[in-house]
Amino acid sequence: MTRFGLTVAAGIAAFAFGAGPVEAGERYFTYTYEPKVLPEGAIEFEPWYTARIGKASGVYNRWDLRMELEFGLSDWLQTALYLNVRGRYADGARSGMNDEARYSQDDTTVKGISSEWLVKIWDPTADPVGLALYFEPGYDGKEAEWEMKLLLGKTLGGLTLAYNAVFEWEWEFEREAGEGLEVEREAFFFLNVLGANVGLGKGWRFGVEATTRSRWAEFTRPRYTAVFAGPGLHYGGKRGWWASLTVLAQLGSSNPTAHGLELSANERVEVRLMLGIDIPGSPSPAPSGGAARPPAPGEFAPIE
């Protein structure tokens, strides 16, 4: 076959087998972000479900559902829009062993919207260390949140390592009669989040995630620090979707309320499931069968 014939055949093959949607970036972790972005032009739907289970005593189940639509804007920038929903069921729950008050609750609340912006600076494979910055403002009418993350990561063959330093600033508002919104409470959180996982083959990955969460009333010293860790499982590699699951158990706290754990603002166990579903048909910057055109004189010629 001539060079031209080979090039045409390659182009036809590329068009026939490669014209599907852009494969989106899979998230191997559910708590830890990697310093990478979605391909330019790709759109992905990512529902998150987090169950938070167990207080000091009684029954307590809370769930958070985040419906995320993620957009790849360039090879260094992505954005996303979230709709946040929270549900809670409590029956005689107590935050601390010495608490007199038991509470019962059964409600579901829309917790507003958030907007994510992720800027990749260094790549986790191409550069010595991957680096990205993450910003996420959120608002629900009563509360506002500003979240910033420094994302570090490294991919070494089948091993993926990632670390996030997270700073969150929350404000709760109250509407005063005739005076508009006033800040009633503000809180700061600092989190260290660490993840490591390894490929097992056939699209499966296994790993661990760990996090420390500190709440600060002022910038003097933390009110508490709680430590969580647990295993994670990921399945992907299929074109079009992936899934990740992590189970975190609270291991201890600097200011425990019961059983050596901080169970006022946190729970004993968290389970997070994330799905990623590619949305096809997003605009293509170039025709997918572009390789069919034979190289012009002076262009990078095929190597014999």
Binding site: F17, G18, P124, G290
Partner: peptide, 30 residues
């Protein structure tokens, strides 16, 4: 790198890279 870990350039010879880039990835990665 948005979709997968990058392969080191030395992992393939010239025809190998040509096959991967032009026939396998050009359409998928646009």
């Amino acid at each position: 790198s948005s979709c997968h870990a990058l392969h080191a350039p030395r992992e393939r010879d010239d025809p190998g890279w040509r096959k991967v880039v032009e026939t396998e990835m050009a359409g998928r990665a646009r």
